[in-house]
């Protein structure tokens, strides 16, 4: 290596270093000025604990609240979207009857996210599983993969959507855990609407939250736990 090369290298090093020193505070200031942080944090994991002993058969309040909040028609034809539905179950062996709401279980390892070819299905850092409809091509592979049948495909053109909840023909959608409400510090609509307070919403990772404390004291189950998806929605009394 000759003299000139070494000099050039030194020169480049100093310039780059100086440039970095000059630009870095500016970048930081820019971020502060624009209020940009890292976005939602993975320290939080949103979830729900549903007390099936408190869930009344025939009561549909959570479903109605969801439909109203998210602008769903509320019709139940096979082509209509249902983000949350009430399931009535009856134990075959002893005849015990239960009623419970079923929706996207916001898995830690969501199959819909694994199979989505365009990465439109994704899990937000705080555990909410969403569809990025800007990217969804409507292949419906996620609907094939979901063990809870939680997703719906929009079969018709839609108009007059809720400005907070964009939805459109040809894309797949499901329960968003009312992400637009969570980002404002509110609870999901179903949890708020339940007359018996059977749906407890909160941060599973925060030891002091109501849901975490309850999960420590009562027996809870995950639906289809054998799949090992570690759902964010847990059921009590099943």
């Amino acid at each position: 290596m000759n003299e000139i090369d070494i000099q050039r290298r030194g020169f480049l090093k100093t310039t780059l270093g100086a440039a970095a020193v000059a630009v870095a505070p500016g970048m930081l200031l820019f971020q502060v000025a624009h209020g940009k942080s890292e976005g939602v944090s993975s320290k939080v994991r949103w979830g729900m604990l549903i007390d099936t002993t408190q869930c009344k058969e025939g009561c549909n309040d959570c479903v109605t609240a969801c439909n109203r909040e998210n602008g769903l028609s509320g019709e139940t034809k096979a082509t209509d979207s249902q983000w949350i539905r009430k399931i009535e179950i009856k134990d075959v062996s002893n005849g015990r009857e239960l009623s419970l709401p079923m929706m996207c279980q916001h898995c830690e390892h969501p199959p819909c996210v694994d199979v989505c070819p365009t990465a439109a299905s994704f899990k937000r850092a705080d555990g909410i599983v969403l569809v990025d409809k800007h990217r969804c091509i409507g292949c419906r592979y996620c609907m094939m993969a979901c063990p809870y049948k939680a997703r719906s495909f929009v079969h018709e053109p839609l108009t007059d959507q809720n400005p907070d909840v964009p939805r459109g023909k040809g894309t797949v959608e499901s329960c968003t855990l009312c992400v637009h409400r969570i980002d404002q510090g509110l609870k999901p609509a179903c949890s708020e609407a339940c007359p018996n307070k059977a749906i407890v919403f909160g941060d599973l990772n925060d030891a002091n939250s109501e849901i975490a404390q309850k999960l420590r004291s009562v027996a809870s189950t995950q639906v289809r736990a054998e799949l090992g998806l570690n759902t964010g929605i847990r059921y009590q009394g099943l």
Binding site: V113, P117, T118, R135, I137, C139, G170
Partner: peptide, 25 residues
């Protein structure tokens, strides 16, 4: 048959390596 065939280019530009569909592309 896709819901949004007009967005087929999205399938080429956004690639999820865990998806068998994407492998098949």
């Amino acid at each position: 048959d896709l819901g949004r065939p007009d967005r087929i280019i999205v399938a080429a530009t956004n690639y999820n390596i865990t998806s068998v569909f994407a492998w098949n592309v």
